[in-house]
Structures are given as structure tokens and as C-alpha cells.
Design a protein around this nucleic acid. Sequence first.
DNA 1: TATGAATGAGTCTTCATTCAT
DNA 2: CATGAATGAAGACTCATTCAT
Lengths: 193, 193, 193, 193
Amino acid sequence: MKKDKPKYKQIIDAAIIVIAENGYHQSQVSKIAKQAGVADGTIYLYFKNKEEILVSVFEEKMEIFAHNLKEIIQQEISSSEKLYKMIENHFVVLSSDHHLATVTQLELRQANLALRLRINAVLRNYLVLLDTILKEGIEQGEFDRTIDIRLARQMVFGTIDETTTTWVMNEHKYNLVDLTGKVHRLLLNGVKG
Amino acid sequence: MKKDKPKYKQIIDAAIIVIAENGYHQSQVSKIAKQAGVADGTIYLYFKNKEEILVSVFEEKMEIFAHNLKEIIQQEISSSEKLYKMIENHFVVLSSDHHLATVTQLELRQANLALRLRINAVLRNYLVLLDTILKEGIEQGEFDRTIDIRLARQMVFGTIDETTTTWVMNEHKYNLVDLTGKVHRLLLNGVKG
Amino acid sequence: MKKDKPKYKQIIDAAIIVIAENGYHQSQVSKIAKQAGVADGTIYLYFKNKEEILVSVFEEKMEIFAHNLKEIIQQEISSSEKLYKMIENHFVVLSSDHHLATVTQLELRQANLALRLRINAVLRNYLVLLDTILKEGIEQGEFDRTIDIRLARQMVFGTIDETTTTWVMNEHKYNLVDLTGKVHRLLLNGVKG
Amino acid sequence: MKKDKPKYKQIIDAAIIVIAENGYHQSQVSKIAKQAGVADGTIYLYFKNKEEILVSVFEEKMEIFAHNLKEIIQQEISSSEKLYKMIENHFVVLSSDHHLATVTQLELRQANLALRLRINAVLRNYLVLLDTILKEGIEQGEFDRTIDIRLARQMVFGTIDETTTTWVMNEHKYNLVDLTGKVHRLLLNGVKG
DNA sequence: TATGAATGAGTCTTCATTCAT
DNA sequence: CATGAATGAAGACTCATTCAT
């Protein structure tokens, strides 16, 4: 399995650093190769093309979010608390890796449509988990049963995303995790009805 | 004033069509000129460079949103109703021009960082008006006075934006304006506390 | 006669200023028109095309050199003295108009070959006069009768030109006219044999 | 070292041919690449940009002049003879490569000021060597000790340059090397005083 | 596996010149 | 005579990808 070889991770990590430091459009394959300490051609032994590197960056990192979220869902806590922990997890992960935050919130959005559609496909797994929280909350009577799940999901994700992007654009000047409580309350109000 | 000359608007409109139909990265200046029915060089009598065309597209169209929103704010209706009309306005304007919707929600986001920062500056005017509604709602006791205005604004805009983008990505398959009520209720719950 | 109309001279003078201040490749017709205080199109009422402006600049100014040189030739002085006065004239004229000096010594040389050939044709009239001095000097026994006139002319002009260009490149830091005596002696030695 | 790779010289030689045959302003990079038998992009593996090709052309070829001149200086011959050999060398090298002669005497002079300043810097090394001959001649009593070295240098170089340019402009119709004796005598007279 | 030299397609912008007014 | 808005051709350079070693 290619993914298990050390150079695979090496290249993924190099890509994040290069993109964060140089911007999406200034992140040539040769720069990523140099940062990873391999030859340009070597990249193509692990990734079919450049797009594949970028999708993989997203897949690998999004897995962390999804993995954490799965654990959260399985905990025996209220849906409101799950929502809280989900927001917190999102903020904590991105706060702890500024490079990653810059890449996902700013740089990767400059990708062409084809790439962004693929990134969205990866994102979907995450959003499905969010749906699970929302559905559970409705079933258990915690959330308003008349809300539209899809819209609620878009509100939750849209708000978290907008909040994070604003934080990145403000150059991480304030503490993102500290906003968890307030964001949670706003969103909770939304879904509680 | 260059902006009042017919060719200025002609080029702006051509740019929207070309970008919507060909994608951001396939929208060469020569294509826009052809669509506008002018020579390539004529473009540069009205715009300093390509970036300036794209920023102007955004400015001109965002002005419509802002203009409508200003009128809404001045009406003698509740803040909740203003929020409703704002969402409705957003959805109506983009529903009535699918090309524009594609350009603002998908294509322009592929712009480089410099351009996106300029687009954000334009957007700010719109968000300031949104703040006005929120502040008024709080003052009048309609909205929870403990909410954080900035976060509330990010929630409202993030939700509207995410909703619209999802609609565009689903190729306008369903009616966006019909979602107004539900989105309004979700957001109202959020700010009502 | 077009040349007698005020705008003709106006455009010539504007061209010298614009070229001296902006460089040959940054001297667009529109810039010259602006400096001359006329519309772009007006230029073409007085000059067939851009090349014609530049050739005319050279013609008009070279006429001054030639005119002065003709007067010098007619004076009843030795050939050596004529040579002296010719060098002096060259240095005086260019010293008194730094813009013109920059244009003839540096900027106009960047012209394409076609234009430079035409400039050379203008220059020839001047060189013919120089030949007259040399021939006279030989006939009168002042200069060595075995020298090759053409080569001697190239030495005299090449030296004057090289001296002037060096002075311009050194940003007119020293006094060019002061070099007349030394240059004259060098060249006189050369032709005296 | 890039300069030692065969393609480096290949491109330099191609540039001389293309410029001589098409003129400075009609020497596109793609034409040079084609002549060199490499892809356009390959040019940029060896030269930073187009200007760098042109400066390198000058550097590489001027090195031949300088190299020969150094050997001449070291010979145990009179300064007058050194001056003779210097002129001869100049004429021989350019006579043996008409393309190179056209490029240095006509085409490269159309370069913009920035490039010409860089070319002049290269030329300076050559002129310094000429100064050496002149100084030595003065010290040994061969040349007039009252001449101004700088002016003498400008006379020698200006004359050689003007002679060569005239020869090129006359399309190499006569034999340039044959002029060596006459030019030498003229210049020698000049510096002998 | 790994290398890295070579490839070649693709585009924004300038500016001399024209011509309807 | 004078204007100035409109025209449209033309070229340097980048970078993802390949393939001989």
C-alpha cells in the first residue's frame, strides 16, 4: 500500500507546508518535491498527478476530523453536548496546525472546480456524521423536530467554516477555541427552535 | 465617468457570462472581449487589467444586494422581518441570474488571494448593513442581547452563503427562494437566544 | 509647408523631451502628443508615422551642426583651427541641450535598423563637410597627404562620438567643452602623421 | 556549471545566428530555441530570461577579444606593435564571423538602456587592457606623456568601433583586416603626439 | 525505486494607427 | 484642421509531466 510508505506522508506534509507558505498558485510540484526531500519525478511514483496530491492532503487531514467526530457521537452525552464537542474539535484541530488551517480555509479554495468537487466529496463524509448528531437530537426531543436537516447542517457547517475562515484571515490574532461556547449557543438556538 | 459608458456595463455582463460558461480559469480576456463585442484592447480602456474586471463584476453586482438591503433596513418593520427580507433578497437576486450565482458562489472563489481580499473588502459593506439589523434587533429587544454580533453575523452570512453554494452545486435543481422561511427560522432561533 | 507651422516644431521639441525623460522604448506617440499639447491623431497630420517623427528630430537638430560647420569651413583659418572649431561646436551644442545629447547619444541608438540607416543618411551630410576640412588640410599641406580620408573621418567622428557618449553616460558630470583642446590635439596628431 | 554544458554554447551560437539574420527585434526566444534545436522551455534552464541570453552572447565573445589581447600585452614587443596587434585582432575576429560582427556592431545596440549598460560593463574589461598598452607606451617613452589616457582610449576604441561598424554597414564589401595598417598609423600618430 | 533534464502549450497586455465626428 | 475612442496583432515565460538512466 502506497499510503503506508514513509514518502507518502512526507509528500503530504511537504505539500501543506509549501501551500501555506507560498499560496496555492505558487505551490509548484518541484517546490513540494524539494520540501519533501525527493526528486520531482518521485512524486509521480506516489501520486498520479498534482490534483491527487491536493485531494490526498484533504483526505488525510479530514480523516482526523471524522475520526474524532465518530468518537464524539458514540459518547453517552446529550446531542447538545455532542454539537459542542464537534465545534470544539473543529476549532482545536485547526488551532493546533496553523498551516493546515490556512491551507483548508484559504488556499485550497482557489483550486479549480473539478478539484473542489472532489474535496466536497471528501467533506460529505464529515457532514453525514453531523447529520447523525442532528437526527439524534431531533429524535430525542432535544432539537426542534420541524427543522430541515439539510438546512440545519448547512447552518452549522457554514457558521463553523465562516468563523474559522475569518479567524485565519485575521491571522490567528485571537483564540479560536475560546469562541466555542458562543458559537455553540448560537447554533443550538437555531436548531432548538 | 467610465462606469457610465455603455461599454463598461457591456464588458461586465460579458465577463459574467463567459466565467459562468467556461469557468474562472478558462475565461481569457479575449473571450470576454469577443462576448462583449469589442476588441481585446478596448477592455483596457475601461479596466486597468484582468483583475480589475473581476473585482468590478463583484462590486457592480454586490451594489444591488447592498442597495436593496438599505431599503429593507429603512422600512418600518420588525428586525425579524428585516432579516427575513434580507435572506429573501439574497435568494431572489441570485435565483434570477444563474450565471451570476455560479460566478459568485463557485468561480470567483478560485481567484488568487489578492483578488479575494479585494472581493472581501467589497463584501464588508454588505456585512456592515447586516450588523445594523442585528444591532437594531438587540436594541429593540427582539434578539438576545448577549449574543456576539460578529459571530451572529458570521452565522447569518455563513448559512446564507453555504445554502446558496449548495443550491448552485446542485445545479439549481430546486427552488432556492422557497427555502427562505426555513432558513429564516433557523437563523432567527439562533439570534433570539 | 508643414515644417513651418508651429505645431510641427512643437511636436519635435516634445519628442526630444519625452524621449530624454522616458527613454526610447517608453516614448509612445500618445506621450509625445500629450507633451506637445495636441491630440494623438494630430500627430499624423504632421508626420506620416512614428519613425518620421524620430527622423525629423534628428534632421532638424543635425541641421544646426551642419549649419555651424558650414560657417566654420568658410572662415579664413587653418584646417587645424577648423578641426578645432568643429569639435568645439559639437561639444557646445550638445552641452547646451542635455536632453538632445541624451537622445542622440543613447536613446536614438536603440531604434531599429531601418530607422538607424535613415539617421545615418542624415549624418552623412555632416560627415561630407568633415571630409571637406580633411581634404583641404591635405591640399594645403597641413595634414599628412598619405592618410586615408575615409578612415581619418571615421577616426575624427568616432572619437568625438565616443567622447560625447561617455560624457552622457557619466551623467554630464564633467565639462565636455573643456575637453576640446585635448581631443583636438589627439586627432590633429592622427591626421598630421 | 551550466556554462560548460553543451546546450549552453548551443543556445549562444543559435542566438547570434538568429539575431544576425532576423534583426534584434525579430529575434524571439522561440526562434532561438528552434535554431538551437531545443524546446523553448529549455532556454530557461540555462538563462534566467531573454536579456541574460544577450548579455551572455556578448560576454562569451568578448572573452575571446580579451583573452587574445592579454596574450598580446605579455609579448615582448613595442607598445606600438601591441597597438597594431590589438587592432588586427579586433578586425580578424570580427572578419572571421560576419554574424557576430553584425550582432555586436548593429543589432545589440538596439537593446534597451539597461541591457546596454550591462554590455558596457563587459566592455570595460577590454578597455582596461587597452589602457595598459597606453600606459606602458607612455612609460617607455613611445607615446606622448602629456596625452589624456581616457581620451586616448576613447579615440582608439571609438575609431576601431566606427571603422568596424562602417564595414558592417557596407555589408563587408571590402577587407577589414587590410585596413589595420592605416588605422594603426592614424592612431599611433594620435598618441605619439 | 529514484532521478532530474527536457518538453511545449498557453495568455495578458501594449501601442501605433485609423476614422467618424 | 483637430479630436480621441477603438482597434488587434504579437511574444516572453511557467510548470505539470515524462522517460532515459
